[in-house]
Amino acid sequence: MSTPELAPRRTFGGVIAVWIAAAVIGVAVGVFAPADARASWLVAGLGVSVVLSFAVQLAYGRSQGFTQRVAAGALGALFVLGVISLGFGLAGVVPG
């Protein structure tokens, strides 16, 4: 039998950190990647975000809710990168 933690650390900060990292990756792709290669670089950025989510949650060392936290980080990163790619698509359509 294991003893419960008296003051467990909050793990939601790790999920938010992955979302912020995904936003930074998305903006970096928009700045540095050519327009015809952005989609493939965004997919690579999503892969980095998934691995980062896994690593951050492993660093917390808590097994309760591990899968849910990793999934929340990965799905949030997917949403963030999707919104950023939507912005790239709309910027490409608008004449400038």
Rank of each mutant, 00 (worst) to 15 (best):
F66T: 06
F12W: 14
P95L: 08
A72C: 15
L6G: 05
W19Y: 06
S49Q: 08
S53C: 08
A37F: 07
V43Y: 01
L58P: 01
I84R: 00
R38W: 04
W41Y: 06
L58S: 11
W19Q: 09
A77Y: 10
P4V: 04
Y60Q: 14
R69K: 15
G82M: 05
A71F: 15
G30E: 05
A59W: 13
R69Y: 14
R9L: 13
L86K: 01
G92H: 00
A22N: 08
A74Q: 11
G47D: 04
G73T: 11
V43A: 09
A74G: 13
L46Y: 14
A28T: 09
M1L: 12
V18T: 14
P4W: 03
G96D: 00
G45I: 01
T67V: 15
L42Q: 00
R10C: 12
L52V: 15
L78K: 05
V50Y: 13
G65R: 12
A74K: 10
A72G: 15
A72E: 15
R62M: 09
T11C: 13
D36P: 01
Q57N: 14
V93T: 00
V80Q: 02
R69F: 13
S40V: 07
G73Q: 10
L58Y: 13
G87M: 05
Y60H: 15
A33H: 06
R62S: 11
V83C: 08
F32W: 10
G87S: 06
A74I: 11
G13C: 09
V48H: 01
I84E: 09
A33R: 01
S53F: 08
P34D: 03
I84Y: 01
A44F: 06
G13R: 12
V29H: 00
R38T: 04
Y60V: 14
V70N: 02
P4T: 03
P34C: 04
G76F: 09
G13A: 12
L81T: 00
I16P: 02
T67D: 15
G14E: 09
L75G: 11
A35W: 04
V80K: 02
M1E: 09
G89D: 10
L58A: 12
G96W: 04
L42H: 02
A35R: 02
A28C: 06
D36V: 03
A21F: 11
M1T: 11
A28F: 06
V48W: 01
V93D: 03
F32T: 02
A77C: 10
V56W: 08
P95Q: 10
V93Q: 03
F79V: 13
L86A: 08
G45C: 00
S63L: 13
A72H: 14
V70R: 02
F32I: 00
G14H: 09
L75Q: 07
A59Q: 12
Q57S: 10
A21C: 07
A55Y: 08
R38I: 02
V18D: 12
A28E: 07
I84S: 02
V15G: 05
G92L: 06
L81A: 04
A55I: 10
L90E: 13
V31K: 03
S85V: 03
A22P: 05
P8Y: 02
L58C: 12
V93W: 06
V51A: 15
V51L: 14
A55Q: 08
I20N: 01
G96I: 04
R62N: 10
D36E: 10
D36G: 03
G76P: 09
V43Q: 04
T67F: 15
A72P: 14
V83A: 13
V93E: 03
G87A: 11
G30Y: 00
V48L: 12
L58F: 14
S85P: 05
